[in-house]
Amino acid sequence: MESSIAPFRIDIPQADLDDLRDRLLRTRWPDELPGADWDYGVALPYLRDLVGYWADGYDWRAQEARFNGFPQFSTVIDGQRVHFLHVRSPEPDATPLIITHGWPSTVGDFLDIIGPLTDPRAHGGDPADAFHVVAPSVPGFGFSGPTRDRGRGTRRTGAPHRGRAQAGREERGVVVRALRLRHPDEHPAADRRLRAQRLTGRPTRLEPGVVRRP
């Protein structure tokens, strides 16, 4: 049974952030062979610097505020809680577009492009290229989860996105590919992306103006 769509706001309790910092600072570091560097895994000096940055350099509240600057929602699809950004364009005839992140990644990858996609006029572009953007967190990532069952592969993950123009950032675009192959007439953006990928042998980005209405 599908649930209603509810507004969502990120608000991590300060006690959780304090606990995380405390655990990071109490890390028990292993020894490392002299000169091993990256030969046996992550180099210890690099990891120490990274953990130090997480503990005392990374500003989670700033990132949280940035996410909360976009309309966010949550719902349940196929028994799975799904978190997503839904940013409507000021252009009334904008094309609906779903952008999907990869494994592992988050919708945070898209925060810099949502503005140009939804309001190209304000960014020096053609308003005819505007999109209504939906950016879901893939089940098991970000705030979509935790997953409660097995079998959430590319086809099942992509099924709720059927009928929308789609662009994918996954390393191989596997969710986008599954949608295009199963529903070719409903995903022109995925179609153009995959054609370019076949020609070049490399994953491609969806360029402005790719999707046009018939």
Rank of each mutant, 00 (worst) to 15 (best):
P90R: 07
R88Y: 00
H101R: 10
S74Y: 07
G41I: 10
W103G: 06
A43H: 13
G57Y: 09
D37F: 07
G79W: 08
G57D: 00
G69R: 09
E91P: 01
Y58H: 10
D31C: 05
R61V: 10
P34A: 14
A94H: 04
A65W: 03
A36D: 06
H86F: 10
P104M: 06
Q72G: 02
N68L: 12
P45W: 03
W103D: 10
V76A: 14
E91F: 06
R48W: 05
L85F: 15
G102T: 11
Q63N: 05
Q72K: 03
R66C: 01
A65N: 11
I98D: 12
W103K: 10
E64F: 02
D56G: 13
T27L: 00
R48H: 11
A36K: 10
P96K: 12
R88L: 13
H101G: 13
D39L: 11
N68W: 06
D37M: 12
D93W: 08
P104G: 11
G102C: 12
N68Q: 06
N68G: 06
D78Q: 15
Y40W: 10
D31I: 05
E32R: 14
G35D: 01
G41E: 01
E91D: 10
A65F: 02
Q63A: 09
D49S: 13
Y58I: 02
R26I: 02
P92T: 01
G102E: 11
L25G: 01
W29H: 02
P104K: 12
A36C: 00
L25Q: 10
L24V: 07
L24S: 02
P71W: 11
Y53R: 09
D78Y: 06
Q63K: 08
W60G: 05
D49G: 15
P45G: 06
G35R: 09
G41W: 04
L24D: 00
E64D: 04
E91M: 07
A65E: 15
W38F: 15
V51D: 01
R66M: 06
L85E: 01
R48I: 11
Y58A: 03
P30W: 01
